[in-house]
Design a protein around this nucleic acid. Structure first.
Lengths: 229, 229
DNA sequence: AGCTTATTGTCGCAAATTGCGACAATAATA
DNA sequence: TATTATTGTCGCAATTTGCGACAATAAGCT
């Protein structure tokens, strides 16, 4: 007996920021060469959002992740049973017990923003790799996962200014210039430095701390964190 | 044998504008007193978006409707099999053949914007009413449908300025003051008249036509339509 | 035909926001 | 002490927005 809802899956686009680049978590399935977004299924008695958080916890070890649902993909064309069959066979899973996984799925997609440094990605039972890939160096992804990534990035860009979501990609204390680099990678364009600083600070939700001495030969920037309230 | 995907439904919040008020389409199920959003299920070989358009066509008679997916509701708490059972029994549908309808559903929600005048709402086989209700005079809706409406309105407000989506609620030719009333009902606030006119016209996507003589004792406004290109 | 009323199209101006360069203030190095 | 790279701010022009003023109607009323 199956313990998950049939025909429903979720996929997560997990963003992190490192080396001045935006990266996402990608899985690689055993013995298949197939790359995919981390995803999963919804338990019979489990809230959809909880299922996604459970999946993220398994992949990253983190609770309390910034998470947004952005689109549900439901085209027939994304139904390719031979792909799932390949994955199951490569893992020695009997098809007879997993026929529900060969049926058509609709996938609810979420994006997550996390602090890159806090994560040690963990593969699941079917995969031998879960790792960061820069957005401009992604391997070919299976099914429509490249489309999902594209739409995630677009939605993230549109939501950037609602509060200060971009800062979820940085450590708890961060500098304004670092935040600007996050914005620039998401939007794919350079922003004016002084205008950016003025705009961010005018939101009035950042608290200034000590300076950060990088060891480089120039003025040290201040560190900021979210203001508690 | 069931011809729809199990565990997946869709609901539509169909907006129209009439009498200076925002309205939505609401169904009433036979012999139950239950009010609900128009919705349906996805055929085994049917794209999700196409299923929603099919449902809208059945309810409104219209093709080519402005449609946006805005959220997928997947909490366990929205699973109330007794509600669906009540509806089926009130229609004399044998439960034995419809057990899939008593299982838990995840619902993908869409909002549609249509020209009120072009629609003659049609009930479906299970309902005896499909009619317009002003947003501030809605009957109590079943399950979480009031939450769905609330989120639809919120999303619509956030997307109002992307192009000129609000104009989809008006006839092909409309006046700027009429458009302003649409915006005001969606946003729930008064807008400055001259600033609104200037902003809308500055988008440069409206074409001016003849004046509209209302028979009232004052200057007649110009009619506009979307510029073709 | 004038006078009145309600509403529309525009304009002007002040206030707020944004783009962009200038400049002084560092932190480390030579 | 001079040099270099980067940061925090300021000033100013350009753009956008909020808001009132005013002329231009369409029709009703004497």
């Amino acid at each position: 007996m199956n313990t998950f809802l049939t025909h429903i899956a979720f996929d997560s686009v997990v963003f992190g920021f490192s080396g001045e680049k935006l990266k996402i978590l990608i899985m690689k399935y055993h013995n298949t060469g197939l790359y995919a977004l981390p995803g999963g299924f919804v338990g019979l008695q489990e809230n959809l959002n909880d299922a996604v958080r459970r999946g993220l916890k398994e992949r990253t070890g983190l609770d309390n992740i910034y998470l947004e649902q952005f689109y549900t993909f439901g085209d027939v064309a994304r139904y390719k049973p031979e792909v799932m069959q390949t994955i199951l066979e490569a893992n020695g899973r009997p098809l007879a017990e997993n026929t529900w996984m060969l049926e058509r799925f609709i996938s609810v997609a979420y994006y997550a923003l996390i602090n890159y440094e806090k994560v040690i990605p963990k593969p699941d039972a079917l995969s031998d790799l879960c790792a960061w890939y820069a957005l401009d160096e992604l391997p070919p992804l299976m099914l429509d996962h490249e489309l999902i990534v594209k739409k995630a990035l677009q939605t993230l860009g549109e939501n950037l200014d609602k509060k200060l979501v971009g800062a979820n990609l940085l450590p708890e204390r961060f500098t304004i210039p670092a935040l600007q680099k996050v914005y620039e990678s998401i939007l794919g364009e350079k922003l004016n430095r002084s205008a950016f600083q003025r705009k961010i600070l005018s939101l009035g939700i950042l608290k200034r701390h000590e300076k950060e001495y990088s060891g480089k030969a120039h003025k040290a920037p201040f560190l900021y964190s979210f203001e508690e309230k």
